[in-house]
Structure formats: C-alpha cells, structure tokens
Design a protein around this nucleic acid. Structure first.
Length: 514
RNA sequence: GGUCGGAUGGCCGAGUGGCUAGGCAGAGCUCUGCAAAAGCUCGUACAGCGGUUCGAAUCCGCUUUCGACCUCCA
C-alpha cells in the first residue's frame, strides 16, 4: 500500500487514485532560459521514480511536465523585463532559438540520467490560447480585474468566497491572508494592484518586449502561474492525482495555481501535493539568486572551480536517491565521491548477481561441490530468511513515501551476500534456488525499472573490448610462465590508462574501465 | 519581522519510544606471486538544558544555531 506525504495535509496518506487504474501527475518543468543545474536534477529524478513506480504498480499514468518557454514577468518589478527576451538580446539570438537550445540541453542531460520522458511535455507558448481563455473565465467570475492592459488576480476577493468552500488562499503553504495583507513591506510597481498579494494573470507588454501575443486586453504575455493551471486542466482534467515540484514553488506558485484553478473548476486541482527539498551547497540552497549553481554539464565534465573531478550522471542520480526526497541534500565533493564508489560497488555486485543466473547449474548442483572448503562459519543460520526479508522490504520502503534511501541501504546489505556466493565464501547451497530467483528478479525490478539506474560504464566499444581481451590473455600466459615482470607491466600500464584488471579466484581476469 | 523545517559518529546520510540503518573514509585480519577487488571484524553518534517515561537520539518545553519561504527560483 503506497503512502505519500501530502504537503496539503502535512501527513502521509494512502495513495488512492481518483480513477482506479489511472494516475495523473503534473510536475512543474524547467524554465528554458538557461542551463539546468544540480538543483534541477532533484525534482526530475524524484518524480521519475514516482512515475516509474506508479507504472510498476500497474497504473496507466499520464505524466505531464511543462516547458516554460515564455518569459515570466518579474511581477514586483525591479528587473521588469521578460527574462527570455532579455537574454536573447544579450546573446543575439531569437527567443525561440534560445528556448530550443536550452530545451535540447535539458533533454540531453536528463537522458543521461536515464529519466523517462513525460507523457506530454507542453510548452507555455503553445498554450497561449488556453491561458487567455482561463483568464477570461476568471474575469467573468469576478476574481480578476484589468488595469492598463494587465490582468490581476484578486486574492482578497477569492479568499472571501473560497475560504467558505474549504479552499482559502494559503491552504497549501499554511499562510494566512490577513497576516500577509498586514505586512508593511513596500515593493515597487505595485500601484496597479488592489492588494499586494494580488498576482498577474496577464501583463501588458512594453514596446521593447519581443515575446508578445494579442489578447482581449492588448498585446502582452501570460503571468507566471497561469500556464500550469491551463495546461494541467487541458491534459489532466479539472482534478488529478499528483502535483509535484520543488518546495520553493509551494508559495506563491502552487498557491496561485490552486486559486486560479479553483475559480475555473470549483475544486482543488490536485489531490496529492508532493514537494522535493532543495540541494544545498555549503548549507545554502543552490539557486540562481545565490549565484552558487553548478550546471549539469559542468558536473559531467568536472569543469567548475568547486569540482575536484567529473561526475558521471549515474553517480549524481545515485547521490540524490541515497537521500529521502523531502530532506535537504548537501553537495560536496566528498559526498559525491562516496556516492561514486558506492554505486560502483553496488553495480558490480548487481552484475555478479546476474551472472549467477547464467550458470545456474552451479546453484542447483549441490552434491558435487565440496562447499565446506573456504567458507566462513555460518553464523547466519537462515541466510535464506535474511535475503527474503531484505528483498521484501524494498516494497515496504518504497511504499513509505518513496524511501529510496532505505531501499538502497538494503541493497547494500545484500552486496556482501552476493559477492560471498560469487567468491565462494558462502556455499552456493546455503540459499535456495527460489530465493536466488527472487533476489535476481526483485533486484532487477528495483535497480533498473524503479530507480532507473544504469551501468556507469560504456560496454559498446567492441574493438576496445577485443584489445583488452587480448591483453588479458597475454597476461594469463605470462602468469602461467611466472613471468611476473611482464604480467605486472601489462596490468600496470593498462591501469595507467584507466583500465583496471582484477585477478579472480578462479583464474579468470576481469576488468573495469574508468 | 512573519510562517515553516532542520541540528545524528571523520564526511554524507536513514530512522524509530527499548532491538546494528546504509554509504564513504580509517584500523586490523583472510584470500592472493604481488596488487586490486572481495569477504570478515572494529569505531557505539544523535546541538545544549530541563521535563514526561520503567526506558528517549526518538515525545514535551526552553536555549543555542543553521536553513527555507514571504521576490525569479527545482
């Protein structure tokens, strides 16, 4: 039974989809006015696991994640310019050219993370009509007003009406409107608003704005929150199951979405609200405003002053999955290096486990092997029971609000067992065939299908692999002749190239690249 | 200032009223021609001060401290 922490109720709740068998999920996607950084990796990896797990549970899932390609106006106005058009001028690019570039980079990065593409990836600019229609409806119902070609949402009026319907403004973030109205903080460019809590649905475009669309209120562009209301409504309906995004979006973005959609649909747009926590760096949130971001491409190449080395996308993904999504996660080189080593060890054990499948004769053939030789005295009477317990807990843990950290911890507890069987520290007949099958089957499901992990190595170069095999054979021959000078030279020089040879117990030699 | 959330061993991080989280690093050992890898063993941590309790890192209060949101932000 899947339980998710619902930000709306601040409790873990049993997940029950609105329509049995189907699940709708909307996740706030990237603003493609710049390159994605490490902080962005968190929500898309987190919700990728949610998506994968819902599918694993048999739901037919529609996963919608928008691309924000229209510049969101800085409502409070100090830098009152459309972000995207501003950057385009600097870089002398067409706005849509810029948008395309960063969209491509986004897709490139998240393919390397092995995240699945959403079912629909709608763009804000592709849904101007829907947004205008929604704004019209909100005006008609009396919850928005027009000033100088701009449209503002009347938060105070909304709250008066909808608080009685159980949807007060602040329902998600726990804010009390009266308190917010009392705040004496003064900001510029607010004179058009009736109250400082009001937010823009549509902004009149000054002449220098490149991105602009005609509307009933003049030429302009949509406000920051309306696209998500419009697009989620279009593709997921008046109400859907999960709305996800970073914690920093809870207020005001999600709060505004709720209000807009409530006016149009009469109810809260999503049943479960899931928010991932932030990635921090030196204890501070990684974010644009702090000027402390590390871009994903910089992480992949190691090309950043704060990085000791390059980190593989899978390492970063593993790093993220080792922490519960609602906890902050602090970036450091040491932490990423630890993740890198841990992942490699886990993956090697996983491959060892899969090999146990291939020559399963070894496992079933209990009688002809003297399994007493090398083994440790088995303090673990029922290794079988232990394995079954660890494996069965995968489901228990992922069901507990997607606790990938605990799933991985259990996998690490299985690693010594798997390696022990492979190296024959543990007799093969200590565990039953059915347990081995369960282990193999569930590991595959969780490692690959649900967590979406992949090998960190590229095995695709057959020429290189052929050459290495050749060197391995030469080394084997040298060792047989006890020509250790030559055998060590082969191993050392390959090692210097990043190809590590390991002499296995059975006389074979395995290797890892990188 | 308001609202909310943290403070866990050298580092990263789970977590629960009593039972070893896990990873990385470190120490010792086994295996090995030597390495590496692997396996075994080990560090007994929960910010501080009170309180509740037979028992609290886990519940309550206070203190210290860090952070998030209130402005674009994943």
């Amino acid at each position: 039974m899947l339980k998710v922490y619902n930000s709306l109720t601040r409790r873990k709740e049993v997940f029950e989809s609105l329509i049995p068998g189907y699940a709708g999920m909307y996740v706030c996607g990237p603003t493609v006015s710049g390159e994605s950084h490490l902080g962005h990796a968190r929500p898309y990896i987190t919700f990728d696991v949610v998506y994968r797990y819902l599918m694993h549970l048999g739901y037919k899932v529609r996963y919608v994640r928008n691309i924000t390609d229209a510049g969101h106006f800085e409502e409070e106005g100090r830098e009152a310019e459309d972000k995207i058009s501003k950057k385009a001028v600097i870089e002398k690019l067409e706005p849509m050219e810029l948008v395309q570039k960063y969209t491509n980079l986004f897709h490139w990065a998240f393919e390397r993370f092995n995240t699945l593409r959403p079912s629909i990836e709608p763009t804000a600019t592709g849904h101007i009509v829907e947004q205008i229609e929604m704004i019209k409806k909100i005006i008609e119902d009396g919850f928005a007003y027009v000033v100088n070609g701009s449209v503002y949402f009347d938060v105070k009026k909304y709250n008066e009406v909808f608080a009685q319907k159980g949807l007060p403004y602040g329902i998600l973030s726990g804010r009390v409107l009266e308190e917010m109205l009392e705040t004496t903080r003064e900001l510029d460019n607010q004179e058009e608003k009736r109250n400082k809590t009001d937010f823009a649905l549509w902004k009149n475009a000054p002449p220098e704005h490149i991105m602009r669309w005609p509307s009933p209120w003049g030429e302009g562009f949509p406000g920051w929150h309306i696209e998500c209301s419009a697009m989620s409504q279009k593709y997921l309906g008046d109400q859907f199951d999960i709305h996800g995004g970073g914690m920093d979006l809870q207020f005001p973005h999600h709060e505004a979405e709720i209000a807009q959609s409530a006016v149009c649909n009469g109810r809260i747009l999503a049943k479960y609200w899931m928010h991932n926590n932030m990635i921090t760096i030196n204890g501070k949130k990684m974010g644009k405003s702090y000027n402390n971001v590390i871009k994903l491409s910089e992480l992949f190449t190691g090309n950043h002053p704060m990085l000791d080395q390059a980190y593989h996308p899978m390492t970063i993904k593993f790093f993220i999955l080792q922490t519960h999504y609602r906890s902050t996660l602090d970036f450091s080189n040491d932490a990423l290096k630890a993740a890198d080593k841990g992942l490699k060890r886990l993956w090697e054990a996983y491959e060892n486990l899969n090999k146990l499948t291939n020559d399963s004769g070894q496992m079933t053939d209990k009688n002809n092997e003297k399994s007493t030789v090398n083994q440790q005295p088995s303090t673990e009477e029922n290794l079988d029971v232990k394995i079954v317990k660890l494996v069965n807990e995968f489901e228990e843990f992922i069901n507990d609000d997607f606790n990938t950290a605990k799933v991985l911890a259990n996998m690490f507890e299985l690693v010594p067992i798997i390696n022990g069987i492979k190296d024959k520290h543990i007799a093969a007949d200590t565990i039953s065939t059915s347990t081995l099958q369960l282990l193999q089957q569930q590991m595959k499901i969780y490692v690959e299908d649900i967590l979406g992990l992949q090998s960190i190595q590229q095995h695709n170069n057959t020429q290189l692999n052929g050459i290495i095999e050749l060197m391995i054979n030469l080394r084997k021959e040298a060792r047989q002749k006890k020509d250790y000078t030559l055998s060590d030279r082969i191993r050392n020089e390959l090692g210097a190239l990043g190809i590590q040879l390991k002499d296995e117990k059975d006389g074979n030699i395995s290797y890892t690249i990188g």
